[in-house]
Design a protein around this nucleic acid. Structure first.
Length: 509
RNA sequence: GCCGCGUUGGUCAAGGGGUUAAGACGCCUCCCUUUCACGGAGGAAUCACGGGUUCGAUUCCCGUACGUGGUACCA
């Protein structure tokens, strides 16, 4: 295939926005397109009005933008194959549905929802819990195959609601290829006469996807594995519409599964286990329900993308940390897995930590600013940048930068006195009193000067480091964590050191 | 039930007829650090099961089990 002709499409439904599986599909589309110099096309599947949500389309654009995987063509970006929303393409779908009827590959069905329900109830047995509208059953239903031409025309003339169904052939063996899974064989006898056009004139996904992929000259279709069972139906459509030689190559991606237990990852799992499932916060305008996003949780987009890429793909090398550009050049379809992968939030956090370490302190200061401001300890970019540099290797997520550095910008609210008491006695108490009196000699911006001061007095008093260092740390920091004590002292200065030590001394008296 | 797809440590995974079966996350031990983290050195832990094919199967084939998806006028 000519590289300029590579056109891959991502076609999410606007509901629920982008969950992990959706973003990963978009990502693999993007990586493949970029790797091969092709185009990445975004279509919106908003054919089902009952599920359409205001703002959802913009949300998808925002998520993709945050991830850095913007499409080349879309309703927002334009392109020569629009419109890119399925709801704007109704007439097109109708035209091809009617063409299929003319060719004898499809038919009108007038069965009401009640009649369908009755049919299902009538034919349901333990062996067949979900009867299908298929080759045998269609002969017992109300459609243009069982009705005479006059009856059919009459019903249509009376505006009787109808759907258009594909007439799936009996006992025909279909062969097709999925790039990930290889050759697949399927007998049409197990395929039902799926609806192509609904009674409201909207297409189902099946018709819309095939028609759009053809008209938009899509070369590769990436989608979740849950679509594999309907692939035979789609192949049939490509054949009956006479487009078989233009059929795209199929890429069915493995599922992302729950961290534990059964099934594919859902919104609920995240809520219960306390991790995000969407790229960004999503507020459903109908219910007001908020679903948390990786962005707001403090993930870096590159870390998010990196983590997602490694869920179902690997480079085949030991490299695990990739930038987007590195992913583009390393990506290959042969390395995509067949089996589903369980999502692991601990590993996701590790990826973020790795990317945090790769990001400059100044950039981190800008990114983390909202969290610092929320805690009321934003004290200017210079200070923040310097402080972040001191503590970033102990952080996984952006808000950790705040909790790990707060003591650099304000006095600790609570002090772990119990930790001090283990090392505490009168001699140590007197040491600190005396030390405060000697602070004039300290060059407050120099850690070595602080160290010299403490060690000098320790030697004079015959005290060992163990007796003094931990209490000093806890007085300054509030607990047993953080970077070197003398670095902290140099950062916060004499005034703050004096205040914190005096306050602790008072509490310990 | 039927149909599809899958199965390497707890998790992500490399490998793909002969290997001591990589690496990472997590867990444990030790070193570094008078804290925590980073870093370093170790450790426990894996080819779902049963039949073939083969001199030899984790790798190929067939079954079984298990998992997962579909079975809608949802995508």
């Amino acid at each position: 295939m000519n590289q300029e002709n590579i056109r891959v499409r991502f076609a999410p439904s606007p509901t629920g926005g982008l969950h992990l599986g959706g973003v990963r599909t978009a990502l693999f589309n993007y990586l493949f397109a970029r790797h091969n110099g092709g185009k990445f096309i975004l279509r919106i599947e908003d054919t089902d009005r009952s599920r359409y949500v205001e703002g959802a389309e913009q949300y998808i654009f925002d998520c993709l933008k945050w991830c850095g995987i913007e499409p080349d063509e879309s309703a927002l970006h334009g392109g020569g194959y629009g419109p890119y929303r399925q709801s704007d393409r109704k007439e097109i779908y109708l035209k091809y549905a009617l063409e299929l009827i003319d060719k004898g590959y499809a038919y009108y069905a007038f069965d009401t929802p009640e009649e369908l329900a009755a049919m299902r109830e009538r034919f349901t047995t333990k062996e067949n819990p979900s009867p299908k509208y298929d080759q045998r059953l269609r002969e017992q239903m109300r459609n243009s195959l069982t009705l005479s031409a006059q009856e059919t025309q009459g019903l249509i003339a009376e505006n009787t609601p109808y759907v258009i169904r594909l007439k799936v052939p009996e006992n025909e063996v279909l062969h097709f290829t999925d790039i990930i899974r290889g050759d697949i064989e399927h007998n049409t006898s197990t395929v039902d006469d799926k609806v192509l056009l609904k009674n409201d004139g909207m297409p189902t996904y099946h018709l819309a996807a095939v028609v759009d992929d053809y008209l938009m000259k899509i070369s590769h279709v990436f989608r979740g594995e849950e679509w594999l069972p309907s692939l035979p139906f789609h192949v049939l459509l490509w054949k009956y519409l006479g487009w078989k030689k233009n059929m795209p190559q199929w890429v069915h991606l493995p599922l992302i599964l729950k961290p534990s237990g059964k099934g594919k990852l859902s919104k609920r799992d995240g809520e219960q286990a306390g991790f995000p499932v969407f790229a960004m916060d999503w507020k459903d305008p109908r219910t007001g329900e908020i679903t948390n996003g990786f962005k707001e949780r403090g993930f870096l987009p590159e870390a998010f993308i990196n983590m997602l890429a490694m869920l179902g793909w690997s480079a085949g090398t030991e490299q695990e940390i990739f930038s987007l550009d590195e992913l583009v050049s390393a990506f290959s379809l042969e390395k995509v897995h067949k089996g589903g992968a369980r999502f692991d939030f601990e590993k996701a956090k590790w990826y973020n930590q790795q990317h945090l370490l790769k990001t400059s302190d100044r950039t981190l200061a800008q990114l983390a600013k909202p969290w610092f401001e929320k805690d009321g300890i934003y004290s200017g970019e210079e200070d923040l940048t310097k402080g972040i540099g001191m503590i970033k290797e102990r952080c996984h997520l952006l808000p950790d930068l705040v909790t790990q550095s707060a003591f650099l910008f304000k006095h600790p609210g609570e002090i772990d006195l119990d930790a001090i008491k283990k090392k505490w006695d009168n001699q140590v108490y007197r040491f600190f009193e005396e030390w405060l009196g000697q602070l004039d000699a300290v060059n407050e911006s120099d850690p070595a000067s602080w160290e010299h001061s403490v060690h000098g007095l320790m030697a004079a008093k015959g005290l060992k480091g163990g007796a003094v260092m931990l209490p000093l740390r806890v007085m300054l920091v509030g607990g047993k964590f953080g970077p070197g004590v003398f670095d902290i002292a140099a950062f916060i200065g004499k005034e703050a050191v004096t205040y914190r030590v005096q306050k602790a001394l008072a509490a310990l008296k």
